[in-house]
């Protein structure tokens, strides 16, 4: 697992290093460090630590194992457990955010909340009722009380 992490961070830092070479000069000239210095320094350090992580893996693994004791069991189990719900939730949330400007906050949130509850396997009827009340109340609290212009949608 650690080696995967090391590779991901190494790739990220290489990408950043490459991107900094495409930085163009702007109207304002920074005669000393320039816009690319800081990202480059960070990326270089990141690459270094990623390499260390790659090679340290066996030792690190044993260290964590010793410290974690009982905690590690539940963590390890959760590594394998159902990653499906978070994935579906992510898709749901993206669809929700895209529909917000059209459906308006109350409707979109009610629908998304109900879908989420179904996704999580809730069988309690008042949970569903609550989600609608929650969405509507939240909208009015923010829109009228805090004057936050939540999307109202095209319908209302």
């Amino acid at each position: 697992m650690n080696r995967v992490v090391a590779v991901v961070f190494a790739l990220l830092s290489i990408g950043v290093l490459y991107a900094t070479t495409t930085f163009r000069a702007t109207l304002i000239i920074d005669a000393y460090l320039g816009a690319a210095f800081f990202p480059r320094a960070i990326a270089a350090l990141m690459l270094g630590f990623a390499v260390v992580l790659w090679f340290m893996e066996p030792r690190v693994q044993s260290e964590t194992e010793r410290i974690k004791d009982c905690e590690s069991e539940s963590e390890r189990r959760s590594l394998r457990t159902d990653i499906v719900t978070p994935i579906y939730t992510t898709i749901l949330l993206i669809a929700y955010s895209l529909s917000l400007p059209y459906l308006g906050f109350s409707l979109a949130t009610s629908l998304a909340f109900i879908t989420l509850l179904a996704l999580l396997g809730s069988r309690v009827w008042w949970h569903y009722l609550f989600s609608i009340v929650f969405s509507v109340v939240l909208f009015y609290v923010f829109y009228d009380l805090f004057r936050v212009r939540l999307p109202r949608g095209v319908l209302f």
Binding site: V5, F9, L12, V16, F23, R24, A25, T26, L27, I28, I29, D30, G34, A35, F38, P39, I42, A43, L45, M46, F49, A50, V52, L53, M56, V60, E63, T64
Partner: peptide
């Protein structure tokens, strides 16, 4: 894990560099 902490920190630093450069506005 110190190494992973540093990697996380560097990731955060990288996130913070997104946007107009404070000096040159790049």
């Amino acid at each position: 894990n110190l190494i992973k902490g540093f990697l996380g920190g560097l990731f955060g630093l990288l996130i913070a560099t997104v946007g107009l450069d404070p000096v040159t506005s790049y």
